[in-house]
Design a protein around this nucleic acid. Structure first.
Length: 289
DNA sequence: ACACTATCCTGCAGGC
DNA sequence: TGCCTGCAGGATAGTG
C-alpha cells in the first residue's frame, strides 16, 4: 500500500483519535511482524499518553509521554483502523481479514486502534524520542520530497556520475525519502523523463541540472499533493481511517495502465510496462525521453 | 562505491 | 471447482 501520500493520509486520520489519548491496554496477537516486537513492548506502551503523531518518509512516529516514541512502518500491506469498543465489533467472523489484526491499542476513550497487516512486512519499535535522528533507520534517510530541500540542484548533485536508471535512484530512500513505485512512475511521466534513462545523463558536464531534470522536482511535488488531496491510492489494502477508499488510483496516468493510450495531450504513444530491479515500471516511450 | 538479486509473507488474478 | 504461477504499494542483506 503505502507510499508517502498513503502514510500521510493515515497519519491525518489517526491523529485526532491518538493525540492526547492514553493507551489503556495493548493486545499483541503475535510476537512479531517483520521483526519481533521489542522486549516488554505492550507493557512499555500501556499507560502512556500520546503527545504527537508525526511522519518521516514512510514512518509514523508517535511521541509518548515518557521520552520514547513508537515507530510504525506499514510495509506493503499494513493499515490502521479505528473501531468502537463495543463487544460485538470483535466478532466479525465473516471478515477473514480479521486474522491479520495483529496489534490493538485500546484507548481510554471508547475507541481502539487496530493494526492489520496480511503480509507482515510492517513493523513497530520503540526509540527514545531524542535519539530518532541518529537511529540507523532514520539517519540515512534522504530529503522529504515535499520540502524545499528537494529541488533541481539537489537532484543534480545526487545524480551526477550515476549510471543507474533514474527510477532506481528516485526509489532509493537515502536520496529522497517517501517515494515508491507508483509515484516515481507517475512523476517521471509528468516530467516527461524516461525511467530507463541513466540518472547521470540528466546532469550537464558542469554538474547543472538539464532542462529535463529541472522539471522533475515540481512533477514529484505535484503528484504527491494531488494524491494527498485524494486521500492516497487504494489498490487493495489502503483505506482512509474512516474506512473510505483513497481515490487517486483513478488519476494514474501510467501506473498499471499497460497498453492504454498515453494521457499526455497530443501524444500518440501507448503505456508500456518494463521491469527494472525486479519491479514493474510503467511509462510512455513516445513522450518520456 | 555501485548495481543488481533474492528474500521476507499473504492474497489475488489468470491460465489450464 | 482447484491447482499452479506470477505478481503486488517496501526495504534490506548479500553478491559480483
Amino acid at each position: 500500500m503505502p507510499e508517502l501520500p498513503e502514510v500521510e493520509t493515515v497519519r491525518r486520520g489517526l491523529a485526532p483519535a491518538l493525540v492526547g489519548a492514553t493507551i489503556a491496554r495493548v493486545e499483541l496477537r503475535r510476537h512479531d511482524l517483520r521483526f519481533p516486537f521489542p522486549e516488554r513492548f505492550a507493557a512499555r506502551l500501556q499507560g502512556r499518553r500520546l503527545l504527537d503523531l508525526r511522519r518521516r518518509a514512510k514512518y509514523l512516529i508517535a511521541d509518548l509521554d515518557d521520552g520514547d516514541s513508537l515507530i510504525m512502518h506499514l510495509g506493503m500491506s499494513g493499515s490502521f483502523r479505528i473501531d468502537d469498543e463495543t463487544p460485538g465489533a470483535f466478532h466479525r467472523k465473516r471478515d477473514k481479514n480479521a486474522a491479520h489484526d495483529h496489534v490493538v491499542l485500546h484507548l481510554g476513550h471508547g475507541k481502539r486502534v487496530v493494526y492489520n497487516d496480511p503480509r507482515r512486512f510492517g513493523y513497530m519499535l520503540l526509540i527514545a524520542t531524542n535519539k530518532i535522528d541518529e537511529d540507523k533507520l532514520f539517519r540515512g534517510l534522504g530529503v522529504e520530497p515535499l520540502s524545499d530541500a528537494l529541488d533541481a540542484a539537489f537532484l543534480a548533485g545526487a545524480f551526477r556520475g550515476r549510471a543507474a536508471p533514474v527510477k532506481a535512484l528516485l526509489l532509493d530512500q537515502r536520496l529522497v525519502a517517501g517515494l515508491g513505485n507508483i509515484y516515481v512512475c507517475e512523476a517521471l511521466h509528468r516530467a516527461h523523463v524516461s525511467p530507463l534513462r541513466a540518472a547521470g545523463s540528466l546532469v550537464t558536464a558542469g554538474g547543472r541540472p538539464t532542462a529535463a531534470l529541472a522539471r522533475l522536482p515540481l512533477a514529484i511535488k505535484d503528484v504527491l499533493k494531488d494524491a494527498l488531496k485524494a486521500g492516497g491510492s487504494s489498490l487493495r489494502d489502503h483505506r482512509q481511517i474512516d474506512g473510505s477508499l483513497g481515490y487517486f488510483q483513478h488519476s494514474f496516468r501510467v501506473y498499471d495502465r499497460e497498453g492504454a493510450a498515453c494521457p499526455t495531450p497530443g501524444c500518440k504513444g501507448r503505456i508500456a510496462r518494463a521491469v527494472q530491479s525486479g519491479r514493474s515500471t510503467f511509462h510512455c516511450s513516445a513522450c518520456q525521453k
